[in-house]
Design a protein around this nucleic acid. Structure first.
Length: 523
RNA sequence: GCCCUCAUAGCUCAACGGAUAGAGUACCGGUCUUCGGAACCGAGGAUGGGGGUUCGAUUCCCUCUGAGGGCACCA
């Protein structure tokens, strides 16, 4: 419906001789401003030298010429806004139709979490984990072909694997935690080199992380990409290096080989081969992204932690260097999302989470204490770039009054009503048009039809946290409806009210499911 | 020193450059013979400072202050 209004406005704009550009139609916060509203006259008034209200008047006149049975009323309001009020039949058919998303042949690869196989996931990983997972769900629903990918930094030539190996052999302390020690004690590293021991231990760590991600977090991956196997052993790294060299993109300095990234937008050039002859991780990273394009993905999304933001520029300069295509919205590739840091608050004092200081909170512990639904909600209801502070005491205190329960409760209540109606007789006719004369019933209907718009918008702007906000407001609308309209009365039920209640329940469940959160029938 | 984020109500967070800046929580007051009260209704309470662009700025630009992160031949 929103697209339709946008088309109507754009058409009217053109009809009165204004060069059609982008037209924005939105849902006004205040329902007295209609179902949809547009600021088109304000935006184009200036360009055409006409006052916004005058232009709005002309547009409305034009729109009214081709009367639509979907629009009940159009009005010009405020500085020049045009407000649209839908007819009950338009609302009803939008409600029945549900969400429709046309299949797109856009192939999207989204890589997230990708923790090193040197330790467990901590709360900092929660952000990228839940953001990536929910985004993948949204994009899939929006019709895109999505591949979820996890990159395993397990190259036996990397320093971290060597360090891990040293620790395994008792020659080092790096990455040592009680959990890691437990793993070391269970494994046999007899006669192994540091490298071999590192690979073996990394494999064990990765395996338990994978289990936790799938079972504990409920996030699944289509591809677990092994750097050691796919890039090192396969020779892809070497091949990439040769390609860079042969195209004259590298040069030698101080015994090392440098890549000319600064000529493509980076702050400085980067080392690709150290003076000892080994390749840096950067080569693998380049080869990896090239491989994603080679596999046929048009959009490559990376979700990284804030500590990796410095890599964005160099990676995108490589994109320009190698001619990687732009993303659909003309963004540089790879498209990178940075999850801001999680800081801790203990006894009212903020502190940085640091492994050395021993104040790391594992994601596992959080899930065990609060349950996956609460944790998912907590990490998903705010924008990715907010620097969230995690107050353990506050989380504990608020877990019982967490907004996630509010949404789940509304769902359970609607489920209970639907269940109850199964044993009742259909009551006297009460059609939809009559039902939505009740403001809260109309508001709920409208809110339900907003679902597809929320999904469409997130698939464009990637603001996944809008889902939580939508779930809350849908629950609020459902509660208001519950207050005003009785679905079951005595031994009969109101058919159109029941239909509305069921649609609300389904939509709430679907929204929660996009967030990876359960929608219980009873609580 | 350079680069990236961020600064909104007591607290945790929202707001394609638009209409009276919204929620939750906390505090205060009210609803209630419950299709499930984990509910509903109401009140008070906010854009860090200073410039600029605009018909209009929380949003864009400059600057100051404050917070976090990054500036390796580690990943």
């Amino acid at each position: 419906m929103k697209e339709k209004i946008e088309a109507i406005v754009a058409e009217a704009l053109e009809a009165i001789g204004v060069k059609a550009g982008v037209v924005h139609v939105e849902r006004p916060a205040d329902s007295s401003h209609g179902d949809y509203s547009t600021n088109t006259a304000l935006v184009y008034g200036k360009k055409t030298g006409v006052s916004p209200r005058e232009l709005a008047g002309k547009l409305v006149e034009k729109i009214l010429e081709t009367s639509s049975d979907e629009i009940e009323k159009i009005e010009v309001a405020g500085a020049g806004f045009i407000n649209f009020f839908l007819t009950s039949s338009a609302l009803e058919s939008a409600l029945e139709k549900g969400q429709t998303f046309s299949k797109s042949d856009e192939r999207v690869n989204i890589e997230f979490i990708s923790t090193n196989p040197t330790g467990e996931l901590h709360i900092g990983h929660g952000r990228s984990a839940f953001f990536g997972d929910a985004l993948a769900r949204v994009l899939t629903l929006a019709g895109k072909e999505v591949t979820r990918e996890f990159y395993i930094n397990d190259s036996r030539e990397s320093n971290q694997i060597r360090e891990l190996g040293k620790t395994a052999l008792g020659k080092g302390e790096q990455y040592k935690t009680p959990e890691l020690e437990e793993k070391i004690n269970k494994l046999d590293f007899n006669g192994m080199s540091e490298e071999e021991a590192g690979v073996k231990l990394a494999h064990a760590v990765q395996e338990s992380n994978r289990k936790f991600i799938e079972k504990g977090l409920g996030a699944h991956f289509d591809v677990w990409y092994s750097e050691d196997k796919e890039l090192r052993a396969s020779g892809a790294n070497e091949k990439m290096l040769e390609r860079l060299k042969s195209r004259g993109l590298t040069y030698e300095k101080e015994g090392a080989l440098w890549l000319r990234t600064s000529e493509y937008g980076d702050d400085e050039d980067r080392v690709v081969v150290r003076s000892d002859g080994t390749m840096t991780y950067f080569v693998a990273d380049i080869a990896y992204h090239q491989n994603k394009f080679d596999r046929g993905f048009q959009t490559i999304i990376d979700v990284w932690g804030a500590d990796h933001h410095g890599h964005v520029k160099r990676m995108q300069s490589v994109g320009r260097m190698l001619g990687w295509p732009k993303a659909q919205n003309d963004a540089d590739q790879p498209v990178v999302f940075i999850a801001q840091m999680v800081s801790l608050k203990e006894d009212g004092v903020s502190s940085k989470m640091s492994k050395r200081a021993g104040n790391v909170i594992l994601l596992r512990d959080l899930v065990e204490e609060f349950g996956i639904d609460v944790v998912r909600w907590f990490f998903s209801d705010r924008a990715l770039n907010t620097q969230m502070t995690f107050d353990m005491a506050l989380a504990r205190e608020q877990s019982e009054k967490n907004p996630v329960f509010y949404a789940q409760y509304a769902h359970a209540r609607l489920a209970s009503i639907a269940e109850k109606c199964k044993g009742l007789k259909e009551g006297s006719a009460n059609n939809f048009a009559d039902l939505i004369k009740i403001p809260s019933a109309r508001a709920l209907s409208s809110k339900i039809t907003e679902f597809s718009e929320v999904v469409a918008e997130i698939s464009r702007d990637y603001n996944v946290h809008a889902l939580a906000g939508y779930a809350t407001s849908l629950a609020t609308s459902a509660n208001a409806f519950y207050r005003d309209v009785r679905v079951a009365e005595g031994d009969t039920f109101n058919p159109s009210a029941l239909t509305l209640a069921i649609r609300a329940k389904e939509t709430l469940a679907e929204t929660l499911s996009l967030l990876g959160i359960s929608a219980p029938e009873r609580m």
